[in-house]
């Protein structure tokens, strides 16, 4: 059984089924990506894992224990909407939040000093959070999430609003945490980050999981149904292609998803007539393509019903 185990959970707000019979399992030492469009039920699921909300039905276990105040201590959680007390000093604030996670004051102090030092933020200890820049307070928020040294880390949209440098630091820390055997679950809709970092994914749409598993296996299951095309010349011929979807298009590059058994050779012929081809490659679809097609199909299916 996984470190985080979610079994048939459902959560209804008034008439809206925010989460509908969802199950997945996060294995120890892996990075698990929770994907899906806005409103798919990711945040609600994450809140239930954190025992902030209780599922209407179903069961969530953390390290084998039913989600409870005791399991909250095992998790470091950074919500999508981040925030700190603006008028409180950095050091006191971190002490407060860390102690709420059950840490003893002396141990909390040591951990906070360690992380402040690690992020080059030791000088800010006596500053009020309101005085800090956005990037600085994001670091403090991150320290508040991890200082109590939990086994499990949950980040809801961790990269939203981060500048490239903080984004990179966060990525490094997440990968470092995994190398220490920690388990990480994060939600995002930035696919390139998922491709770079995640071991497993779970794709949500309309409160249900529509796709889940090991990232590489998921991608392989879609087969090499995509063309990676590099060319020079007039790219307008691309608009006349039928039964394809163009992703990631630019002046001399296109990722072409072939649909309905359209012939790849035919596409190559057309391309050669209109432009000089530098590269023509059959590849696995990008995660972005998988995301769009899976969610699209799911929505179509729902409309028919």
């Amino acid at each position: 059984m996984g470190v985080i185990h979610v079994e048939n959970i459902t959560k209804t707000f008034e008439k809206n089924k925010a989460v509908n019979d969802v199950s997945f399992s996060v294995e120890k030492g892996r990075i698990f990506g929770l994907l899906g469009p806005n409103g798919a039920g990711k945040t609600t699921t994450i809140r239930m894992i954190n025992n902030i909300l209780a599922p209407d039905t179903g069961k969530i276990t953390i390290n084998g224990e039913i989600a409870s105040p005791a399991t909250q201590k095992m998790i470091g959680y950074m919500p999508e909407e981040r925030g700190l007390y603006k008028k409180m000093k950095v050091g006191e604030q971190l002490m407060y939040l860390t102690q709420l996670k059950g840490m003893k004051p002396s141990a909390a102090k040591k951990a906070i000093d360690f992380w402040l030092d690690r992020f080059g933020a030791s000088d800010w200890k006596k500053k009020e959070v309101g005085e800090l820049s956005k990037g600085m307070s994001q670091k403090i928020q991150f320290i508040a999430t991890i200082a109590h040294d939990p086994d499990i880390y949950i980040f809801d949209e961790p990269f939203s609003g981060l500048d490239p440098i903080n984004s990179e630091t966060l990525k490094e820390v997440i990968i470092e945490l995994r190398s220490q055997g920690k388990t990480i679950l994060f939600s995002t809709h930035r696919m390139e980050q998922v491709e770079q970092m995640c071991d497993d994914i779970c794709l949500f749409n309309r409160g249900k999981t529509v796709l889940q598993g090991d990232l590489r296996e998921v991608k392989a299951s879609f087969g090499k149904n995509t063309i990676n095309l590099e060319f020079e010349g007039d790219g307008s011929f691309l608009d006349n292609l039928t039964d394809v979807r163009l992703n990631n298009r630019s002046t001399n590059f296109a990722e072409i998803r072939v649909l309905n058994g359209q012939s790849m050779q035919g596409i190559l012929e057309v391309a050669m007539k209109h432009a000089e081809i530098h590269k023509f490659e059959r590849i696995q679809p990008s995660l972005n393509e998988i995301f769009i097609s899976t969610v699209g199909e799911d929505n179509l299916k729902n409309e028919e019903v």
């Binding site: 954190n50 998790i75 909407e81 925030g83 996670k101």
Partner: peptide, 16 residues
Amino acid sequence: EEKTNRIVEVIASSVK
């Protein structure tokens, strides 16, 4: 203030 600061969700992940 805790709501507008958005800190309440962090707190809610530690206390009832």
